[in-house]
Amino acid sequence: MDALKSAGRALIRSPSLAKQSWGGGGRHRKLPENWTDTRETLLEGMLFSLKYLGMTLVEQPKGEELSAAAIKRIVATAKASGKKLQKVTLKVSPRGIILTDNLTNQLIENVSIYRISYCTADKMHDKVFAYIAQSQHNQSLECHAFLCTKRKMAQAVTLTVAQAFKVAFEFWQVSKEEKEKRDKASQEGGDVLGARQDCTPPLKSLVATGNLLDLEETAKAPLSTVSANTTNMDEVPRPQALSGSSVVWELDDGLDEAFSRLAQSRTNPQVLDTGLTAQDMHYAQCLSPVDWDKPDSSGTEQDDLFSF
């Protein structure tokens, strides 16, 4: 819950932080000083300027060897085509990944977070970031790969997607708890209302004896509580940590079903599988986004697919 609360507080303090972009060759504004600060901008989305290598189908939802083989196929196909790589912007948030063309600003792909089953910074092609997700059109699994400016960037994108998945799962947990509370309150309110109706004398007997209905007592009954809980029953509950912020979080049926399955089948359902080692994760978390744009010590960066 700490990640969720800190993310909400950060967004309320400075929503404009989320509009910064990394990996864009110096076009961005001043960047936060450390990885923790940038992680807090996830709610509205972190932007990464990358190059799209392509996509291939895979048979399993996750796995280092599986993704490595898929990336190898994608890279080989991209090299064989001889075409310049498409420059894209990857927007990562707890909602998922939005992929747009840098030149036309046209939407290429919009992947809900619950469809993503794996992401990684490839070991062999260490400047490549990739994720595996279920197609929104059918049940097939797709591996999408992107060329980053350097290994640090690939690791940073991988960690960002993993963190977005974690925050999304926490949102789901909060929403589920809130819905259970509202359902319980609604049920209790309905029981109270039913009890009051059972003990209320029939209207005919009131008229016969000349008694008047006590409207004041009726007004004191917990009807307002019942209506408050039943009027918006169809509205999706939102985490309290975000009250007053500009973010509107809505959970669709697909996300609810997917996270429910994860909660039942996995020990740590909030953790998205990645190909990063503990050492890689520690190294990337210690980086400032400013470091992502620094040239690798191995030599001059080449803006070309064939540089790796």
Rank of each mutant, 00 (worst) to 15 (best):
K84N: 10
Q285M: 07
L66C: 09
S14F: 00
Y114F: 13
F146P: 01
P202R: 00
A7K: 14
T274N: 04
K184T: 07
N110E: 11
L11G: 13
D273Q: 08
V226A: 12
L85R: 11
Y118R: 12
V128A: 06
Q20H: 05
T120F: 13
L43F: 11
I98F: 12
M153L: 08
K184G: 14
Q279H: 05
M153Y: 06
I116E: 11
A185I: 04
G96F: 09
D303C: 03
R39N: 01
N138Q: 12
M55H: 10
Y118D: 02
E188K: 11
L193Y: 08
D280L: 11
K83M: 09
Q285P: 03
S307K: 00
S175A: 00
K220M: 04
L42W: 15
R29Q: 04
F169G: 01
L57C: 14
S245L: 02
V248S: 07
E40K: 15
V88D: 12
E301H: 06
S112R: 00
G96C: 10
S67F: 08
N34L: 13
V236P: 00
L43K: 15
I71F: 14
S112T: 13
P289W: 05
L103S: 12
D304P: 02
G23W: 12
L262H: 05
N105I: 07
I108Q: 03
L262W: 03
D293T: 07
F48S: 11
S227D: 12
T77N: 13
S265R: 12
L305F: 11
A208E: 04
Q155V: 14
M233L: 11
T267H: 06
G254S: 09
S245A: 09
R182H: 08
Q270L: 03
R29S: 09
N211E: 04
K62R: 06
I116L: 03
V75F: 10
P201D: 11
E142K: 11
A156I: 09
Q20I: 06
Q197L: 04
Q197H: 06
Y52D: 06
V75E: 09
H125C: 09
V247L: 15
L50I: 07
G23Y: 04
F306G: 00
N110Y: 08
G299K: 07
A228S: 13
A76L: 07
M233K: 07
Q163E: 06
N232H: 11
E257Q: 10
A18M: 04
Q155A: 12
Q20R: 15
E64K: 11
T100F: 08
Q136A: 05
L255C: 10
S297N: 08
S112M: 01
T149W: 00
S246M: 13
L50W: 01
S288R: 09
S307W: 13
D273R: 08
V157Y: 01
N138I: 12
W35E: 14
K150W: 06
R182W: 06
G45E: 09
D214T: 09
A219I: 12
G194V: 13
D214H: 11
T231K: 14
L203Q: 02
D296R: 07
G190S: 07
F169L: 01
G8N: 11
P32K: 14
T149S: 11
T89I: 14
D303R: 05
G299E: 05
V247T: 15
S265K: 00
D280P: 09
V75K: 10
E217T: 15
V161Q: 00
L272A: 01
T77E: 08
I132L: 12
Q187A: 04
S245T: 00
S6M: 15
T277Y: 03
E180H: 05
T160D: 03
R238S: 08
I108Y: 09
I12L: 15
E235Q: 15
F48V: 09
R115P: 15
E170V: 04
A78C: 07
E33C: 05
G190T: 06
A208H: 01
P295C: 03
T104D: 05
A284D: 08
Q197C: 01
V58D: 07
M55C: 10
T200Q: 07
F165Q: 01
Y52T: 06
A278V: 14
P239H: 01
G8H: 08
S246D: 02
R182D: 14
L276E: 05
D183Q: 00
V226H: 05
E177Y: 06
N102H: 11
A69D: 13
Q136H: 07
K123A: 11
T41G: 08
H28F: 12
T300M: 01
P222G: 04
K19G: 15
F171I: 01
P15Q: 07
A145M: 05
L17V: 13
D303M: 09
Y52N: 02
S140C: 15
G96L: 03
T89Q: 11
I108R: 11
A168W: 01
A3N: 11
S112P: 00
R182E: 06
G244V: 14
K127Q: 04
Q264M: 01
L223T: 13
Q86P: 09
S21L: 12
D252T: 07
V88Y: 14
S140H: 14
L31I: 09
Q173T: 06
S175Q: 06
D256R: 05
G210Y: 01
Q187F: 02
E170C: 11
A156K: 11
L206E: 07
C199P: 04
A219E: 04
P237H: 08
M153V: 04
L141G: 12
